[in-house]
Design a protein around this nucleic acid. Structure first.
Length: 649
RNA sequence: GCCAGUGUAGCUCAGGGGUAGAGCGCUUCCUUGGUAAGGAAGAGGUCAUGAGUUCAAUUCUCAUCACCGGCUCCA
């Protein structure tokens, strides 16, 4: 007998060799029907794989991440089976599950192409093969046999994958006539898969390397119930309505004109208000944290970027230098603000008592992103960073780093971003020549970040090889409407630029020391941040941000004068208003889409004009009663204070 | 930069070898009084650009550009 520990810490005894499915059956019929895989001592297993010793297990259902993973991984195999049936001779790369379904990278027989129209026939074949309820069977195999099998099958990709695996760890999975190299786990049989939608086709390089052959990647998603697929498709439609490009046009926030240039957004009046409010908010926060605003030019001498090392690393792939009538003189559109800020630091000798110095700037930078990369406001070629550089003594580094994390938290709180991930990006230890700076400095910088994060209790993931070329960083990522992750806030520790720019401060012992630098942008960029904000709120911003806070509506033409008076008074108190006038004598008609996103409606008519009041309605909440204009101003201001209070606590 | 898809009015889209349509929006007029309207008239398009096939191309073919979905990249 073996002891099985369940997630609630209860222990049950079963005979040796019992499977996850049998345990589920012993608990309840319903569980047995719904369970998809079993986690055994932290490792996800097939349901029918025998458990031979004491173990802690968890039975994974659809609602568990592990359950979905198993389900979609098996779906990828099912798709491969269908594709092999329909297009014999196809070679297969990898086919994992992803956040929203799965994909398989395939190499179709010479001359064969896959287009969207082929997806329906693959779907149909998959359904057919799913209904056959073929068992998915796991088989241990020696490395030699695995290599032989896939060499015979003439599949170079699998052969390459197997070559990298140690002998003794290789398993094959078989269903129907299809056999794939796979670690598993998988569903017991293909019949679990009831609803299938192949979503798109894309090119993808083998092993993600640009120099390798491009394979065809087929994306799909499957569900155990048809209804779940329908709900998913509806959810996708809803998500598209929140797309910042669509709302940006509807709300007249920004415009991307090809006449101006690719990836160079134009901010329309209302978008400018949104941006300005965000900037004011952050400036206020930064003032509290001891930052000083600076302003620097949009171009800089090429030599400045040679000093920083940026030119050598990125010059060829950037906007090219601007020449002048003077022979040999070259300027670069600034791709980042740090060199300028370093020069501000160097303006005069600095004492250890001056540090930390925190220089902040909403600095517009220009980067020549690849054309295929441009995407609405999230990936552009000209954008404004909410940048700042902190120059501090080594002993102040951690404290400063922690304070920057605090600023990021304040922003996330004020805007109700709850679901973010924090990623620590370190340099790739096997490829250190990609980076500038000494090993010692890298070590120090990386350690500072890791320690600061653990001190904050921040849950982080760590990725090697994702660091900036001058230093490691901590990034905050947020998902957009369609679940794509975007990097917003970033905090980077840098020992290298201070060295390159020969930055110094005088210590208490009258000796010269080098400061440490922190690059940080809690929004990331105004463009990307606004994009993600729009998708999160679907354009219904908090009152303090919204471009139009109040609509004033005169009930008839007779009250236009009074409405105008109300408007003027509100405008005097910095409240952002529009007037809605059916007769369009004093204002314009406010349209549906627009109206839904304005939080307050003030109705003025006979009664209000007599008493000097307004009737207040709050979007989605209804009547707030009749009040004087002064009362309403106070009311609105207190709502804004309320919205921001939590952020500052 | 690479793979696939799309490109028709300001927006959302229908159509289709014989030089264009709808809804919304826009302009003008009328109507409308506690709520986000109703009626009438009107303006708007070299059907992305260039070449080819054809008696004839917005429609078919090719190329280019842009956009969309991915890949790579992302200081």
């Amino acid at each position: 007998m073996i002891k099985i520990t369940l997630p609630d810490n209860s222990v049950k005894e079963f005979h040796e060799g019992i499977s996850g499915l049998e345990i589920a059956e012993a608990i309840s019929n319903r569980l047995a029907k719904e369970v998809l895989s079993v986690t055994v001592n932290g490792e996800i297993w097939d349901l029918n794989r025998p458990i031979r010793s004491d173990a802690a297990i968890k039975l994974n259902q659809w609602d568990d991440r592990e359950g979905k993973e198993t389900f979609w991984h098996s779906s990828a195999h099912l798709m491969a089976e269908a594709i092999e049936t329909l297009y014999p001779g196809t070679k297969f790369g990898i086919g994992p599950s992803i956040d929203n379904g799965f994909y398989y990278d395939i190499d179709l027989p010479e001359g064969r192409m896959l287009t969207d129209k082929d997806l329906a026939s693959i779907e149909a074949k998959m359904l057919e093969q799913a209904r056959a309820k073929n068992d998915i069977v796991r088989k241990d195999i020696s490395k030699a046999d695995a290599l032989k099998y896939f060499s015979q099958k003439n599949d170079p990709y699998k052969v390459e994958l197997i070559s990298d695996l140690p002998d003794g760890s290789i398993t094959l999975y078989n269903q129907g006539d299809f056999t794939d190299l796979c670690r598993g786990p998988h569903l017991p049989n293909t019949g679990y898969i009831k609803a299938i939608k192949l979503t798109s086709i894309a090119g993808a390089y083998w092993r993600g390397n640009e120099k390798n052959k491009m394979l065809t990647r087929v994306y799909g998603i499957t569900f155990p119930k048809q209804k779940m697929l329908e709900e998913y498709l509806i959810m996708l439609e809803e998500a598209k309505k929140r797309d910042h490009r669509k709302i940006g046009r509807e709300m007249e926030l920004f415009h991307l004109s090809p006449e101006v240039g690719l990836g160079l957004p134009l901010w329309l009046p209302k978008g400018a208000i949104l941006r300005e409010q965000l900037e004011l908010f952050l400036k206020k926060v930064q003032k509290k944290f001891g930052y000083e605003q600076v302003i620097t030019p949009h171009i800089g001498d090429v030599n400045l970027y040679k000093t920083s090392g940026h030119f050598q690393k990125y010059g060829k792939d950037s906007f090219q230098p601007i020449t002048t009538p003077t022979e040999g003189e070259e300027y670069l559109l600034k791709p980042m603000n740090c060199p300028h800020h370093c020069e501000i630091y160097r303006f005069k000798p600095r004492s250890y008592k001056d540090l930390p110095i925190r220089l902040a700037e909403f600095g517009t930078v220009y980067r020549y992103e690849q054309s295929g990369e441009l995407h609405g406001l999230t990936r552009v070629r000209g954008f404004t960073q909410d940048d700042a550089h902190i120059f501090c003594r080594p002993d102040q580094l951690k404290d400063e780093f922690l304070k920057v994390i605090d600023i990021v938290f304040i922003i996330f709180k004020a805007l109700d971003f709850k679901e973010y991930t924090a990623q620590i990006s370190l340099r790739d230890p096997n490829n250190t020549e990609k980076y500038i700076g000494s090993d010692e400095n890298w070590e120090k910088a990386q350690r500072a970040i890791v320690e600061a994060c653990s001190e904050k209790g921040l849950k982080t993931t760590t990725v090697l090889g994702e660091a900036a070329f001058y230093g490691p960083k901590l990034d905050f990522m947020i998902k957009d409407a369609l679940g794509r992750s975007w990097q917003l806030g970033t905090i980077q520790v840098d020992y290298n630029l201070p060295e390159r720019f020969k930055l110094e401060y005088i210590g208490s012992d009258d000796k010269r020391y080098q400061p440490v630098m922190i690059h940080r942008a809690p929004f990331g960029s105004m463009e990307r941040f606004c994009a993600v904000l729009i998708e999160h709120t679907a354009g219904k911003f908090p009152v303090w941000l919204t471009p139009d806070q109040v609509v004033v509506l005169p009930i008839s033409e007779k009250y236009n004068d009074y409405a105008q008076k109300v408007l003027n008074e509100l405008n005097n108190s910095d409240i952002r208003t529009v007037i809605d006038d059916r007769n369009e004598k004093i204002g314009r008609k406010i349209r549906d889409n627009e109206l839904k996103r304005i939080p307050y409606l003030l109705i003025v008519g006979e009664k209000e004009a007599e008493n000097g009041t307004v009737s207040v309605r709050r979007q989605g909440e209804g009547d707030k009663g009749t009040m004087t204009i002064a009362e309403f101003s106070d009311f609105l201001r207190s709502e804004i204070r309320e919205q921001l209070r939590e952020a500052f606590n």
